[in-house]
Amino acid sequence: MSDSVRKLTTSHETRPRIGEGQIAAQQETLPNEIDRRLINAFQGGFPICERPFQVAASALNLDEETLIARIDALLKAGVLTRFGPLFNAERMGGVNILAAMSLPQSEFEQVVKLVNLQPEIAHNYRREHALNLWFVGAAETPEKVEAAFAHIESVTGYPVYRFPKQHEFFVELKLEA
């Protein structure tokens, strides 16, 4: 990847995120009928033209201003994690690698903090299994991801099990709102 491409920290970092434990507290921000239509219609296919919100809004019987305001509100509420192009890192020469760790409860939170501090770690989930921490390392080279994993291993003393994809099967999921 070009050296001229500099790191950009996404604004998502500061957005509230909703996990299972917070669902009850988030009920009031759950999407309304307009939001549901918007989410169901535009998980892909957002127009590429001068006034894309206007085109998208008319397909939903809304006006441009309302559509922009709703997307903004849904992003701020954490109902949407992103709006815009969803990139395939591999097609740009980047890599992302799934990995897992098996951690004792007593050290879990401390290791999570360390893992999340690595800029290469894009997703991180607790899962119910002997392998109880699962994360994705993403960077423009496999070496950078490997360096992040190796750093986590050396600081924590626990192995990071790598699960690189060997084959990606085609999917087309849309979540119904």
């Binding site: 491409v5 790191k7 299972e20 890192a89 894009a122 991180n124 607790r126 921490l133 699962w134």
Partner: peptide, 18 residues
């Protein structure tokens, strides 16, 4: 097996660069 996610600990969009 099925492994359920019991907590989302981090989720960021794509980040590229150095």
């Amino acid at each position: 097996d099925i492994l359920y996610s019991s907590r989302m600990l981090k989720k960021t969009g794509l980040r590229i660069g150095d």
